[in-house]
């Protein structure tokens, strides 16, 4: 009996895995938020896990799934350590921006002042349109509570 998991099906899985890997790489390169960068790295891991499971299914053994379980373990460890690091880094600079940490670069590499440029080009006031936050009414002074009869009695 031939295996129903043909090489065309394997190729489909590998293509989807490659797309997830490339999208994760795009997010890791292009985004500046530390947390979104780690999310993108997790997305690359998902693409690799998909390819491994498909290869294991094609070859008819459990190795792909065992490897994916190891990937799950390493991803959980990575996420916990990364989140601890993110909390520490946020406490140092009060920001999640990765470009603030350019002083740990290799010697001889130019810095990019993206943070300053962005700060000048787009100040922090809300932008009209899709990207604006709702304006909430400022809460005033707490009004004097009228004394209810039952609270008077209790006093």
């Amino acid at each position: 009996m031939t295996d129903p998991f043909t090489i065309d099906l394997l190729r489909n899985y590998l293509l989807v895995g490659a797309a997830l890997f490339a999208l994760g790489m795009l997010g890791f390169i292009a985004r500046r938020n530390l947390i979104v960068m780690f999310l993108s790295a997790e997305m690359m891991l998902q693409g690799v896990a998909l390819s491994l499971v498909a290869f294991g299914r094609y070859h008819g053994n459990w190795s792909g799934q065992v490897f994916t379980i190891v990937i799950l373990t390493v991803a959980a460890c990575e996420a916990s350590i990364a989140m601890a690091l993110v909390v520490v880094l946020f406490n140092r600079r009060s920001s999640l921006d990765v470009t603030l940490w350019q002083d740990v670069r290799e010697p001889g590499v130019e810095t990019t002042d993206l943070a300053d440029e962005a700060g000048e080009a787009a100040p922090m006031e809300p932008i009209e349109g899709v990207e604006s936050y709702p304006h909430l009414t400022p809460a005033g002074v707490e009004p004097a509570h009228p004394i209810q009869p039952w609270t008077e009695r209790r006093r």
């Binding site: 999208l23 390169i29 938020n33 921006d97 470009t99 943070a115 962005a118 990207e131």
Partner: peptide, 18 residues
């Protein structure tokens, strides 16, 4: 929403590469 969420790091080259 912070500045670094509204700004990408060289998006053109990143899109080309990936």
């Amino acid at each position: 929403r912070a500045v670094y969420d509204r700004a990408a790091r060289s998006p053109g080259r990143a899109v080309f590469t990936s």
